[in-house]
């Protein structure tokens, strides 16, 4: 137990970061029925922007820049790559998402020159090393879960109590009917992407504070894990995504702690397949019936 403690702490922290990404997946899937393959790359871009800005600007300028850049990127992806395909089959939409992911990775490769960018100036206070219960860790591992829970509560309140939040709920329940009832569907979808990208940016700042470098592929695996968390919790459900993310983060770190780090990702994917086969609606998902 003593030996596993650091892994548990890391797991909770990783879970918080996955949760922030997973909300982006689950919101978009709830409305568009699209696995936004580019979301992990949006997360990676946020990390890159953070590396570039923190090395040349003070913190109170660089953090807002990271958030704004990421939100603009998420918004632009939706407008350019997904909006023209709104009436196309779902497969085209997914191919477009894969194409965007490919494009972002290659552009990032071109801009960064292909080498992983080291995180030289991490955010001061949260990246300090502390000791809790005999385990050394960075302060960010404690900040992450708290901040995640806080943001989730704000988001849930927002979706429950504002007009655009109501639009989001309506669109995820029934896209066509929501449109007929006068919900401005394009605004709602853009807003969904903005919220998703914003949370991914926060997740990215926390994640890469704990990491030595940002590589162009470092978004794809956290992205997939977060997606699996969203499926595990029941896709379309925000509390589900958060619970799923914490479970996956914990399990992965525990497996690493037991000495099977090769299989930590394999476990996550196996969990996905088991969930899909046994209970496709996930922990908190609603049952969907297909009509002919």
């Amino acid at each position: 137990m003593e030996a596993l403690l650091p892994y548990i702490i890391n797991g909770v922290s990783a879970g918080g970061q996955y949760a922030l990404i997973a909300i982006g997946y689950t919101l978009v899937y709830g409305i568009l029925r699209l696995i936004n393959f580019a979301h992990g790359d949006v997360f990676m871009v946020a990390g890159l922007v953070m590396v570039y800005t923190t090395s040349s600007m003070p913190l109170y300028v660089s953090i807002p820049i990271v958030l704004i850049c990421t939100v603009v990127l998420g918004f632009a992806i939706e407008r350019v790559a997904y909006k023209p395909l709104r009436s196309a089959p779902r497969m085209s939409l997914m191919i477009s998402a894969i194409g965007v992911s490919y494009l972002i990775q290659n552009l990032a490769f071109y801009i960064t020159g292909g080498l992983p960018k080291p995180v030289l100036n991490p955010i001061p206070w949260v990246s300090e090393t502390i000791t809790i219960l005999g385990a050394t860790t960075k302060r960010v591992t404690l900040v992450t879960p708290v901040l995640t829970i806080l943001l989730v509560f704000v988001l849930v309140y927002f979706i429950k109590n504002t007009k655009i939040g109501m639009g989001m709920r309506a669109a995820s329940r029934d896209f066509e009917t929501a449109r007929l009832m006068g919900v401005k569907i394009n605004t709602v979808i853009s807003f969904t992407f903005i919220v998703g990208s914003f949370l991914a940016a926060v997740g990215s700042i926390l994640y890469f504070t704990n990491y030595p470098s940002v590589a162009i592929t470092s978004g794809s695996l956290p992205g997939l894990r977060a997606f699996i968390a969203a499926v595990f919790g029941g896709i379309g459900s925000i509390p589900g995504a958060v619970v799923g993310a914490f479970i996956i983060g914990l399990c992965e770190e525990m497996i690493k702690g037991l000495g099977y780090s090769t299989f930590s990702d394999a476990f996550t994917f196996a969990l996905l397949i088991i969930v899909l086969c046994v209970k496709p609606t996930g922990l908190f998902g609603e049952k969907v019936t297909d009509k002919v």
Binding site: L34, I35, M94, V231, D265, A270
Partner: peptide, 20 residues
Amino acid sequence: PVLRLKSDYLAIATLGFAEI
């Protein structure tokens, strides 16, 4: 197990198997 799944779930499950 996997072929019982529909479109995007099938995609992500097969992707998962490749990674495993």
